[in-house]
């Protein structure tokens, strides 16, 4: 800036990084891309934004997300450090899978997908306990080779994680958060799939009867309101913090085995019976927090 600061400069004279930052603050990638027609200066500046945000209004068609990702990649100026997609209404599995496939190789940071984002949380919580479920179909999560965080809030869209071997590893993944997901019976998360996962949150999910977790790098695990859980087998040798809430119900006779010898903190706010819930030795455990009314055993 060679002027006096308070002169008659215009916004376009600012350094590109600042203009890009302004576009970033719009938190709306389409609106940012529309600035391409403002003037030559603004042409394709949007493609330098590292964080992309989309709102999708159409359940069956997510092509604008795929097209935007392709256009962003074509300019190849910056990697995507964050991709947030909100589907306002119930996205179909095909529409979801199609943009996820395009996004998978491009994201080097965080993926956040929220389905049925206009539905209030209290409605989703009601649906958690409803007997009859609307079948929304299932999509398969592709491999995100560079993503470090994946957060999925699916409004009870079905998710399938192909088993280890079929599923290529997610080597960069450190955090996985799954909520309002419809499962279909089983789910296994193991080192073959996500060898360096540090934090796992599974919260308010339906249809997950049999959960197997074998993750050696896992440090924090939060399992909350997995309402249909019958079997939990967790071998998590590096785990420090375990939080379990409202997952186990006596009338289901659930069977639980948790091998986690490094655990320091446990919050166990669900049914407990030493005949059904087996823990490994936990020599480093500090005083457990048990809000559990059926807590009968010793640690």
């Amino acid at each position: 800036m060679d002027c006096d600061g308070d002169g008659d400069l215009e916004l376009s004279d600012l350094p590109s990084e600042i203009l890009v930052y302004i576009l970033d603050q719009l938190k709306d990638t389409r609106a940012a891309a529309r600035t391409s027609v403002l003037s030559r200066r603004w042409r394709n500046l949007w493609a330098r934004i590292p964080r992309l945000f989309f709102r999708n209004h159409q359940p069956h068609d997510s092509s604008h997300v795929s097209d935007a990702l392709a256009a962003h990649a074509a300019h190849a100026v910056s990697a995507i450090t964050q991709l947030t997609v909100m589907s306002l209404y119930s996205a179909t599995p095909d529409a979801t899978a199609s943009w996820l496939c395009v996004a998978a190789p491009l994201i080097s940071g965080e993926l956040c997908f929220r389905n049925r984002s206009v539905v209030p949380m209290r409605t989703l919580i009601q649906e958690l306990d409803e007997e009859v479920v609307e079948e929304r179909g299932v999509f398969e999560l592709p491999c995100f080779p560079k993503a470090t965080v994946i957060r999925l809030s699916l409004g009870f869209l079905g998710l399938s994680l192909p088993p280890s071997g079929v599923f290529s590893a997610q080597p960069a993944l450190r955090k996985l958060h799954l909520e309002y997901v419809q499962f279909h019976g089983e789910c296994t998360l193991d080192d073959g799939m996500m060898p360096f996962l540090k934090e796992l949150v599974i919260c308010r999910v339906r249809g997950l009867a049999n959960l197997t977790i074998k993750l050696k790098s896992l440090i924090r695990m939060n399992l909350s309101e997995i309402v249909d859980l019958l079997r939990l087998n967790a071998v998590v040798p590096g785990l420090k913090n375990l939080y379990v809430r409202s997952c186990l119900y006596r009338w289901n006779l659930p069977l639980v085995r948790i091998v986690a010898e490094e655990v320091e903190d446990i919050s166990w706010a669900t049914w407990y019976d030493p005949g059904f819930v087996k823990f490994s030795e936990m020599p480093y455990l500090k005083m457990p927090h048990t809000d559990c009314c059926h807590y009968t055993g010793t640690w």
Binding site: Y21, L23, D24, Q25, K27, T35
Partner: peptide, 27 residues
Amino acid sequence: CCWRFADMMKGKSASEIRVKLGIRDDF
């Protein structure tokens, strides 16, 4: 400041943004 500029651009058409922020159209 960037947040405030973004806020000024929100919901506006290209021509409205040009007027609001004094951007010369050279297309």
